[in-house]
Design a protein around this nucleic acid. Structure first.
Lengths: 244, 244
DNA sequence: TAGTGGTCTAGACCACCCT
DNA sequence: GGGTGGTCTAGACCACTAA
């Protein structure tokens, strides 16, 4: 663990423990630098981390301050890439499950090949799953993975976590993902599997996940019942803000 | 403009111009430092900016590379902090306008007061606007601002940019925003103003904008015609990723 | 093993806030 | 004007990639 990340962790722990209360000012960077026996630049990098995690904010000429919901945030660990979070009414007393409707291998269509940056002769897995909460279906999920990137995918794995398999077994690093969200009318499949009425809208999410180097890893299209799923986003000010 | 941002802009221009082609490797940081007559750390900061903007990626020990869709991205200007971007078919040959349906002041409801962290006796502006593209309405927008934060708001300002007014005139710094997105059936207002049919779903976006210090600045609820608006998200791996 | 990016330092100067 | 954060430097060492 590098120094500035370690220092960020330490400060976060202290915030979590209430040593630096909500809305209070942190010691100035010079003081922190001495305290952690390091240089000011390193402290700055640590504070930047906490700042972009939404735990503190800084005002030039004034100081760095603990945000009012920081304690809650510091605990929540905001698993990143999940600042886009999908919430159903998940809780302790709810039962989440999934049913694999289809698992097969085929060649991609022209559009799919383009999106996943494949040749037409490179096969993909095609997976269709129904997400169920307390016996009520809420999402219909359609997913493609290039076979070359995720070899030996089995139905076994599908029932656990595909992502854990990809990260821990295949040791691939995730990069960015792009999503498009729209409202649409229910398709025939939606009516069949999600039990939508003719005028029940669905929330459609189209997503491409990329690896760290930009290689497309996954294409998915998910239809959610509008009365069971909504999406939450937290947007922090980007580092490029104000550049243009 | 500080140096590292300026350098980032320069490099972005060169990428846009095709001087650094897609997938090519940039000169190493030492070389760039000499070229821009600066230190390596400053170059690093510039490259970090481009990297978090999704224009390049770097591999330790190997180099910095131009992403394959970088040219497109560099042009789209993806106004940052808007890595959540709303796209209608905005282009050169389209006419965007807005109509103010309502502009008034009142006391907030209990829920609203809680969301905006106000007391019941602190007034808010209530604004209703219809967004129009080429004579076709596409979004119905309902917004609340605390009067105390945005004094002297006039209908004049509404027709220009509220945000510009807030940033440049009032000198307030924006912080994070939180959004909830869902699909829903059209309300009576939607049918009236957005000309929705009974079974036309709408894309509903509920948002709270905060200032840098966490003070809630704005609450809004927008209904979009599903056939004219979709939302795009780009999720980059956060800087805190892997810290825990 | 050579090349390259990531981190870290110690100190400098500037921009900004606050009183 | 004193305190504080933001940027920048020049150089060092380490971690990783690629041949």
């Amino acid at each position: 663990m590098v120094k500035y990340k370690w220092i960020a962790e330490e400060i976060r722990k202290q915030i979590r423990a209430g040593f630096y209360p909500s809305e209070s000012r942190l010691p100035d960077q010079e003081t922190l630098a001495k305290q952690y026996n390091t240089s000011r630049m390193t402290i700055k990098k640590a504070l930047d981390l906490l700042s972009s995690a939404g735990i503190i904010y800084t005002i030039q000429g004034s100081g760095s301050y603990v945000k009012r919901d920081a304690v809650e945030l510091a605990n929540r660990t905001i698993h990143i890439g999940q600042n886009v979070g999908l919430t159903t009414a998940t809780g302790a007393d709810h039962q989440l499950s999934a049913k694999v409707l289809q698992f097969s291998v085929r060649f991609p269509s022209e559009t799919e090949a383009e999106l996943l940056r494949l040749e037409r002769h490179e096969p993909v897995y095609e997976i269709e799953r129904l997400r169920i909460l307390d016996d009520k279906p809420h999402s219909l999920e359609y997913t493609l993975f290039p076979v070359a990137l995720v070899p030996n995918l089995t139905e076994e794995v599908l029932h656990k976590s595909i992502y854990r398999y990809i990260r821990e077994e295949l040791k691939l690093e995730f990069g960015e993902s792009r999503q498009t969200v729209r409202a649409s009318m229910p398709s025939r499949d939606d009516k069949e599997h999600l039990l939508c009425a003719d005028d029940d809208p669905v929330l459609e999410v189209e997503k491409i996940n990329y690896l760290e180097n930009g290689t497309p890893l996954e294409y998915s299209r998910v239809h959610h019942r509008h009365d069971m799923v909504e999406m939450h986003f937290v947007n922090r000010r980007g580092p490029m803000a104000g550049v243009e």
